[in-house]
Amino acid sequence: MKIAALGIDVGSTTVKMAGVNASGEMIWNHLEQVAPRVEKQVDSFLNKLKEEINSLAGIPLVATGYGRNLVHQAVKNVTEITCHAKGVYHQLGHGGTLVDIGGQDSKVIVIGAQGQVVDFAMNDKCAAGTGRFLENSAARMQVSIDEMGSVALSATEEVTISSTCTVFAESEIISMVAHGVAVEPILMGLHRSLIKRVVAMVRSVGLVPPLLLSGGVVKNPAIRKVIEEETKEQVFLPEHPQLMGAYGAALLALKVKQK
């Protein structure tokens, strides 16, 4: 394994790291839940990798994500907007409108024909339209976050959750549960509520097809289905949707090395 460059994405929920070879192919990756002490966690990431490949000398690291400024080993910090666009474009080979639903924020990025960011919008002020919305609701419904999508898709009917606000949605859920509504239709309604918020962001920048998805939340199959229903567009996913930020960062690190 000949790693030429590394990227790390310190997100609000998980820390992802990707290694690429000289051709820009992802040949190594690692993902963990984010620890309270990010600096220590990054040190342990790098030590683990060092054990695998003996030396990290001459391998540049670019950091992105919420905690990018805490990665003192990085040669450069780049925002997750640029890194996600870079990673997805490199993996899929074309531009489009990328929706990245992360744990704490969501982004819509219009990627141009050459892979450049043309426009973007971010929802970063509240949990509406983010993974945290689902996480909170899953906890309230006592459904594991991993099963949430499949449980929602098993619904034969759907209720309307009118709140995109996480706190108010929780109140709505409590009220519905108290009125005897089953878990499945509530979960389906929750997915639609989240996606409607995301689609509003897509419309604010203007959808340039195809629609692309990245971020940990897209592992949830209900998210993909509902976003296709709401946008009437087929969605395309990269092979490792959750690692696109780290991958993009690694590609930028490779560029630093080649300069």
Binding site: T79, I81, T82, Q116, V117, V118, M122, D124
Partner: peptide, 10 residues
Amino acid sequence: ATRIGAFLEM
């Protein structure tokens, strides 16, 4: 910071 950073990178 992220928004302004991303805008400048763009």
